[in-house]
Design a protein around this nucleic acid. Structure first.
Lengths: 107, 107
DNA sequence: TCAACATTTCAAGGATTGTAGAAATATGGA
DNA sequence: TCCATATTTCTACAATCCTTGAAATGTTGA
């Protein structure tokens, strides 16, 4: 992952509404959610959710596809995975003790 | 890790100079680097580096300690580890396939 | 084609963040 | 104590980001 992309991803996740949206979409799974449903569940206006969804897409953390009248958003698992990897490989460079406690908790 | 802390950590890492600083300090290891050395290596003014270092400390990603005239900054491994864990546990919630490719690359 | 719906785009204003340089603080040695 | 060094704090300004509401776009069904 390029640094430019990582910076955008971190910026995208540093905003409360957007962090909530990402979590919702990850939980929603491959079916995703329509923009309107996201707006309702996140309790923000349609134009505001649109602004944040665009930001998240620019950052490569979510994807969109039109389906009838709705636009469906889904979590971009590759993008999220790449960000986790970036943090581990680039930031913990040469110091596996940073990431070790993070990974062992998973199994 | 609390959400508030995670938001601050993401914001801290979303700025180019700060991301560089964190990487430098991780590579520097437990000995850390004096503020002046960080400023020089990152090619920013003393007052600017001070601003960014404060931000990174507020986010819990680095620590400081005075040593004679210098103030030595070190990477906060616990803070970085907690952020990795947050991304994995909270964002990949219930979808291990997101994090799996990130973790298997490590061994 | 037209009306209703779902969503985005636009423009404006407010809030937050980043930068620069000058002044202040803390430390150690002469 | 006084000076030089290392760093932070302050102030002001520029840049970026977020929110809001109105207008525009695209889609479907009557």
């Amino acid at each position: 992952m390029e640094e430019r992309q990582a910076l955008m991803s971190f910026a995208a996740l540093s905003q409360e509404t957007r962090l909530h949206i990402v979590r919702m979409l990850v939980v929603a799974g491959p079916d995703g959610m329509a923009a309107g449903a996201v707006a309702e569940k996140a309790d923000v206006s349609p134009s505001n959710v649109s602004f944040h969804l665009k930001e998240l897409e620019r950052a490569g953390l979510i994807n969109q596809k039109r389906e009838a009248r709705s636009i469906i958003y889904t979590a971009n698992y590759d993008g999220l995975g790449a960000l986790v990897r970036f943090l581990m490989e680039d930031c913990c460079a040469g110091h596996p003790e940073i990431c070790a406690p993070a990974t062992e908790k998973l199994q």
